[in-house]
Design a protein around this nucleic acid. Structure first.
Lengths: 307, 307
DNA sequence: CTGTTAGCGCATTCAT
DNA sequence: ATGAATGCGCTAACAG
């Protein structure tokens, strides 16, 4: 690879002039300018990004740590993020993590000057203590300052409204395993029930079970009657549908399943109603936070998506 | 952030000694060694990756350009790749691309010294001319030297064998849109039919249609009878199942759908039989190619996956 | 064993 | 308008 010296020599100017021409700064005689551009063209010269980074004290890399548990969801975020980042000429350094330990590990490995900022996406486990400046997207627990979250209250409310409008008033909920998201979802759920004058039945809510399978099992075993089931995302919904069918609880005839996050539906989508979040918006806001254009938390509303 | 000078000063040694301790570490008096480690600990010092890269002329970044068209598939590769790369202390710089133009663009943007190597994953479109050293994973057209490909012949053969064993002998095929993958798939398909003494019927094969929807439409309209349908991946399969059901061609009773690549099934998996590829192996081989441990093409066999 | 020095490629003063 | 010099943080060659 040719470097700035090669170009300078060929163009018969100094390194400084080459740098000036290619970095946009004006105050260069048109003649030298052309000479530099020609030389660069001939040598197929690209300024070395690493040297630029060292000099400017800023790589243009953003570290993105993506939770693996709900990959289908996270992938949508990845795409949306990459799109926004590349619009800002930023690069996306990717890492996966499936628990607090590996997350922490990833954060440390990316904290050696290689990245200008970090994002954590879709972590559904309790987050460890993280550096304040990390941006959280759709994580359970906004322990850090900067975050973009989904409006869980609104989602749960909307879901309940929809189900009630479908004459399903015995609505079960398999909630998040904890964190603020769980609390907010519960709030929305209760609030909406209240609006419809449906009594709240504690037995219809399952929380803190290790898997949907177990949670749903517990719900069914309890013998409580339900005509609808709220779950936190599409993959849970898929699993729920299969299980319910096995138990002769046909979907949607006997039980209507509702996904509280169907943001990244597959092409051959299911007919399960869901709340869909605007991934582009979320990514855009996240990038704004990253680039320091704003500093606070940000809540995004999804919209009802029915077949 | 503290730098090597801070550590040297605090440890009362020179930069070189600090570097020695934290890098190769041999030939340093135990006493200085401890002093350096202590100082580094106190200052929470991490060697600056960018400076290291500039000095060593090698970032530890691998650029991965991921085709977006079949994201569900690609995501599996992404995870597997990241895992293998991090085992080798390499970082994954992610880019998405959906056609030859954006692919080329991505390649250029990553060719400024920021990456040590590049990978393209899952490109289902004809590839443009690319630098020879790029590694291709599961792409249609191995125009470049280094690539890891799926054994399409074997996949198609295996699929046909399975379907014949299920008494389905009228097997339709919606093939890849072109490239070597299409040819090989066709080869395997014909070979297996030949083995089972099933005559080859050109009408059963649809190629070069813009979407599965259209391809399948064409197949159905042609009036040709088929009791099985080979498609190239799970998302195509999903769509096919929906369409077939709409046309009263119930799956799997009337038509059995078979996915030639079901590598990244969702949790609530479907019951569609498929060929599954060992993503870990593929990623491992790709990384070997990347790190220059080998130089050639590599073909990986999948295995039959039935519910 | 260890300190000094010279790059790595570039951007940015500071003179001219 | 432009060239020479300096520094970004680190590693490696060389000289003690």
């Amino acid at each position: 690879m040719s470097n700035i010296n090669d170009v300078a020599r060929l163009a018969q100017v100094s390194k400084a002039t080459v740098s000036r021409v290619l970095s946009g700064s004006r105050g260069v005689k048109e003649e030298s300018r052309q000479a530099v551009l020609r030389a660069a063209e001939i040598l197929n010269y690209k300024p070395n990004a690493i040297a630029q980074s060292l000099s400017s004290q800023s790589t243009n890399c953003i570290g993105v740590i993506c939770a693996t548990e709900h990959i289908q969801q996270s992938t949508g975020y990845l795409q949306a993020l990459e799109k926004q980042l590349s619009r800002h000429r930023k690069h996306l350094l990717l890492r996966f993590a499936n628990d607090d330990k590996s997350l922490m590990h990833a954060v440390e490995e990316l904290s050696n000057g290689m990245c200008d900022a970090l994002v954590v996406v879709g972590a559904r486990f309790p987050l460890p203590e993280l550096p304040e400046e990390i941006v959280l997207i759709d994580c359970l627990n906004p322990s850090s300052g900067n975050s973009v979250q989904c409006d869980r209250i609104f989602a749960a409310e909307t879901a309940v409204h929809y189900l009630c409008s479908q004459q399903r008033r015995n609505i079960a909920l398999v909630n998040f395993p904890g964190g603020e998201a769980a609390t907010l979802t519960m709030d929305g759920y209760r609030q909406a029930l209240h609006n419809y004058v449906v009594p709240f039945n504690r037995q219809l809510v399952v929380e803190n079970e290790p898997s949907l399978r177990i949670a749903l099992q517990k719900l069914i075993n309890s013998g409580v009657k339900f005509t609808a089931l709220l779950v936190t995302n599409d993959s849970q919904a898929q699993e729920a549908v299969m299980m319910l069918n096995q138990y002769q609880l046909s979907v949607p005839e006997k039980v209507m399943v509702f996904s509280l996050d169907g943001s990244t539906r597959l092409p051959g989508a299911s007919t399960i109603p869901a709340i869909e979040y605007p991934l582009e918006n979320i990514a855009r806001r996240a990038v704004e936070l990253l680039l320091g254009e704003r500093h606070n938390s940000d809540v995004v509303r999804g919209s009802l998506l029915i077949a």
